[in-house]
Design a protein around this nucleic acid. Structure first.
Lengths: 118, 118
DNA sequence: TCCAATAGTATCATTATGTATACTATGATA
DNA sequence: TATCATAGTATACATAATGATACTATTGGA
């Protein structure tokens, strides 16, 4: 009856980390602290306003970041990691390390193949 | 000039872990060992043959799993985690634990909101 | 001769995700 | 009065990911 739902909890972490832009947004906020919208946009080259807004809203919805609006003109909005969001840091770092090692792994594999053609 | 490429290595781990089905496929293979195609299909409810094939091919391409074909009729193909693939286990487990905690976090939040309506 | 079983492909439809571009509000400043 | 800046929203469009369904090859057995 019960289809091993416990195996699928990984998805919950994944859904927060994925989206082409979330990891880098989170790493920037973790490593560099609170940032305003336009600073984030500059810090994440290539992202469109729509996607940045979109990803920030999703992260806010999950309590990973907070959004603070200053009632000024021109507008000022600051985004920060929450304490809860900081609990993701070990995963982010583990993934970052694995990702780096994996990039090297792939380079080595590609080299071997160029030395030993089929 | 250089746009902090090191921040994006997370993506490499992510690209292997994501796809709606990869985490559960990997967890099944890690926890239950070698499995044939049809067993995996049964073990991952809801996946289509196309997606299972697709995800397995991508994992194989990255050296995370191996594919062993037995020249029989009807065909028999076995999939296993590689030693290299096993290096993903800590991340998978960390994500699984975080995901479980996060599910609880969301439940509590939902409860609070039902007790304190706006 | 026809069917069953396994491990797939092939084709098309649907959704999700991402991009491009234009547009808005406000008040300070030129 | 026109222009700038910020933090968006709205709209249309393009591409990629996923899903549903039907189909294939092989050969031992009914």
């Amino acid at each position: 009856m019960d289809k091993q739902p416990e195996l699928c909890r990984v998805e919950d972490a994944l859904n927060i980390l994925v989206g082409k832009w979330k990891p880098i947004i989170l790493l920037v906020l973790l490593q560099e602290g609170t940032k305003r919208f336009s600073d984030l946009k500059r810090r994440v080259p290539g992202i469109t306003q729509k996607m940045l807004t979109n990803q920030l809203r999703e992260l806010e919805e999950e309590d990973i970041i907070t959004r603070k609006v200053y009632p000024q003109v021109p507008p000022k909005v600051e985004y920060s990691i929450t304490e809860y969001g900081k609990t993701l840091e070990p995963i982010l770092i583990a993934m970052h390390e694995w990702g780096t090692a994996h990039t090297i792994h792939k380079m080595k594999k590609a080299q071997q193949q160029s030395h030993q053609p089929s």
